[in-house]
């Protein structure tokens, strides 16, 4: 799909073909038949049902969840279940921590990736292609495999159980650099940049007053993607943080691995920490879908 404000969209529906020609498909593929809708609705149900079930289970008692047939509508036990989940772990703190961590990571990543993406897209320097190739290469390196030295580093710094232990290592994204570069190559007119330079503005000045305003839509999409990833990140946070200062995922790990007797309580914790993200996701879904699809088109 197209990102916001992309001037020349390659999307299928923009083709100026005749509106309805009965004998030949207008776009790349024909109109969807009933079977297509049926299958897609089936996939949608499977995609959404586990989330809906979280809501049902979180609002019921354990006995109700375990009855046969299982309940399909929400009940009235949500507050009690949430109270019991709070006995295990401070979910408010977890949600606040996750907001701080994911927010900082999103802001930092977007900043660094916009800077680098702009340089790779529009600046001429000696190692441009080599360094950009290296950046793409780093996408293949799984950062979680460096967790042990990273852990030792954080112990040495005394940062275990501090949020910066999670924020700092996650502050850059090769995908983000790639994403910003692809956007700026097309969206940023060279004439505009040269006009800035002719006026004697420094490259940083040009970046602030010309590049940033143009990059804003892509920065917003990248910010959402990074925020979502940071919110859901699991492996490193459960090593770097404990139940004393958890993010949402650390809290869920504790609920899931602890001796919590009631499944409804676990589901209440899951519901409370997942539903805000899903709600925001539904609101911004169109942009996030666009961002993922835009990032997917690569050489």
């Amino acid at each position: 799909m197209t990102g916001p404000d992309r001037p020349h969209s390659p999307s299928g529906d923009g083709t100026p073909a005749p509106r309805r020609s009965p004998w030949r498909p207008r776009s790349r593929q024909g109109r969807a038949g009933p079977l297509t809708y049926l299958v897609l609705i089936g996939v949608t149900v499977v995609s959404v049902f586990p989330l809906y079930w979280t809501l049902v289970a979180a609002t019921r008692t354990n006995a109700e969840i375990n009855s046969v047939p299982p309940p399909m509508l929400p009940g009235g036990n949500l507050m009690k279940n949430i109270d019991l989940a709070y006995d295990q772990i401070d979910l408010t703190k977890a949600i606040l921590n996750s907001l701080i961590v994911s927010g900082s990571i999103a802001v930092g990543t977007v900043m660094f990736c916009t800077l680098a993406g702009f340089a790779f897209a529009k600046l001429r320097f000696r190692f441009n292609n080599l360094l950009f190739g290296l950046t793409l290469g780093t996408m293949m390196i799984p950062p979680s495999l460096g967790a042990i030295p990273l852990y030792m580093m954080m112990v040495e710094l005394g940062w275990i159980d501090h949020l910066q232990a999670v924020v700092l290592p996650t502050l850059v994204s090769a995908f983000g650099v790639f994403f910003m570069r692809q956007y700026l190559v097309e969206a940023l007119p060279n004439e505009l940049l040269e006009a800035g330079w002719v006026d004697g503005a420094s490259t940083f000045r040009v970046f602030r007053s010309i590049v940033l305003p143009i990059a804003r839509p892509a920065m917003a999409v990248l910010g959402m993607l990074v925020f979502l990833q940071a919110w859901n990140d699991f492996f490193w946070p459960i090593l770097a943080l404990t139940a004393n200062n958890p993010t949402v995922q650390v809290a869920l790990n504790n609920l899931g691995q602890g001796y919590v007797p009631d499944r409804s309580v676990i589901m209440a914790g899951t519901f409370l920490t997942t539903i805000p993200v899903i709600a925001v996701f539904i609101l911004l879904g169109r942009q996030i879908v666009g961002g993922i699809m835009q990032g997917a088109i690569k050489g």
Binding site: V43, T44, S47, V48, P50, L51, W53, T54, A57, I65, L228, W231, N232, F234, V248, Q249, L252, N253, L255, G256, R263, I266, M267, T270, T273, T274, V277, I278, F281, I282, G285, R286, I288, V289, I292
Partner: peptide, 20 residues
Amino acid sequence: VAMLMPYATSVAAATLVFSG
């Protein structure tokens, strides 16, 4: 958007729900 909702769900949340 509906098909991408599982992607927006964390590993932890998804696994806890499916364990049930």
